[in-house]
Design a binder for these strands. Structure first.
Length: 400
DNA sequence: TCTGGGGTCCTAGGACCC
DNA sequence: TCTGGGGTCCTAGGACCC
């Protein structure tokens, strides 16, 4: 039996939601109606476009390009900062509305959901359900969505990406040729800007040409990825809508510095605050990790990373920081200006599952107490209360 | 010109073991 | 001196997504 899948995608999510929030708080302007973008902070060197209004799009402004470039295309562009707390709120409102239609919802990102409607159609068609959702979101929540209607996730996702905004598109098997095969390969989900030129060299320019190309040849050249691209081009995708929330597989934080940093002391200090953030999130998930990874990016955008597996799992700030510091020192080259540093923990498992290991030092219980005390202070007074004074934190961990 | 931050998945090559 | 093949684990880096 054919599956019945919808993909709901909020139009210009960050910008629409910011607009609604501003209107609610007395703004006279609807920033959806003017050339506007949501962007990072150029003075902090994170000046990229996160979302754009339709008017901004008409100037040729694209997501992920620099604000500098956006301003060249449209000097009068208005720029607003992003605010994840607000986005999370609107995202939840959408999720709650969609939950009235099926239990099988996957939150694919903050502004996208997949719905498996196979057992929830009642006496309606899939398209009728899409139309009802489309109307209700606009009327009850105040923003617009695109909805893709299809028999698998890939085709639903491709369909929701057709003409925007505020539209519903179907992409059933008999429509693939006319609606998808005519598109350039760059429009295919999973096919990024590194693969496009390689396929061009093979005389493959449209999704249709990819679909009709030799699958074995693609596998030889691109491995598993090649097989998947060929299947996607042919509209084949058997993946399930993952409606059970999944535990994270890794947790990481990174920071681009306002100015490049070459001094090891400063890098270590920042690494400690990254370790605090990462392990705080780890403990909040009630998980432990056994792989530590540190990433550096130089001023010339050269990325390097080192990682190491620990002989045990931990969520201790001190333990993670200790290993991270070793990794940093392995990579550190004096006088090399660093632009970004990241810390990530991998190999996550549930707290109760991880056992005390032979290798684990027995001061661990003491560390856990320190960590949980700090966590409690943060829960009560906010995260920043205790991160601010990094030097005293450093001493706290050193002496314990 | 200036290029975020948070993820997932895959691959190549080296080390090591039998 | 010349010397296998298979398997597993680990690390570095790349590609892609929103």
């Amino acid at each position: 039996m054919e599956r019945q899948i919808l993909h709901v995608d909020v139009n210009n999510a960050f910008l629409s939601w910011t607009a609604l929030y501003m209107l609610k708080n007395g703004s006279k302007v609807d920033i959806r109606e003017i050339p506007a973008i949501i962007g990072g902070d150029e003075s902090k060197r994170s000046g990229i476009v996160l979302a754009k209004s339709q008017k901004a799009k008409e100037f040729g402004i694209k997501t992920a390009e620099t604000i500098y470039q956006a301003r060249m295309k449209c000097p009068e562009i208005q720029i607003f900062p992003s605010n994840y707390k607000i986005y999370k709120e609107y995202s939840n409102k959408l999720f709650n509305l969609l939950s009235q239609y099926t239990d099988k919802i996957e939150r694919f990102s903050i502004d996208e959901c997949f719905l498996d409607m196979t057992q929830y159609l009642m006496n309606s068609t899939l398209l009728e359900k899409a139309q009802e959702i489309h109307t209700r979101v606009k009327k009850e929540l105040g923003f617009t969505v695109n909805i893709g209607v299809a028999n698998n996730k890939l085709l639903a996702k491709m369909a929701s990406d057709f003409a925007k905004p505020d539209k519903i598109h179907t992409l059933f098997k008999n429509e693939i040729k006319e609606k998808m095969w005519t598109l350039p390969i760059s429009d295919l989900f999973g096919l990024g800007k590194k693969t496009v030129p390689k396929l061009y060299n093979m005389q493959i320019r449209t999704i249709g040409e990819l679909a009709k190309s030799d699958k074995e040849k693609l596998i030889r050249k691109f491995g598993k990825h090649g097989a998947q691209l060929w299947e996607y081009a042919n509209g084949i995708d058997n993946s399930e809508v993952k409606y059970e929330p999944e535990k994270p597989k890794c947790i990481g934080n990174s920071i681009t510095f306002p100015e490049n940093i070459a001094e090891i002391e400063k890098l270590e200090e920042i690494l400690l605050s990254l370790a605090e953030q990462v392990t705080y999130r780890l403990r909040k998930e009630q998980m432990k990790a056994n792989i530590v990874n540190v990433q550096l990016r130089t001023k010339d955008f050269i990325d390097t990373s080192h990682q190491e597996k620990l002989p045990y799992s931990t969520s201790s700030t001190k333990e993670i920081y200790k290993k991270a510091k070793q990794l940093l020192l392995q990579m550190y080259k004096p006088h090399t200006p660093i632009r970004l540093m990241g810390l990530r923990v991998d190999g996550l498992e549930n707290e109760e599952k991880s056992q005390i290991s032979f290798f684990q030092d027995n001061t661990d219980a003491k560390q856990e107490k320190i960590d949980s005390t700090i966590d409690k202070i943060r829960e009560k007074y906010g995260y920043d209360v205790i991160t601010r004074n990094k030097l005293s934190m450093k001493n706290l961990y050193k002496n314990s």
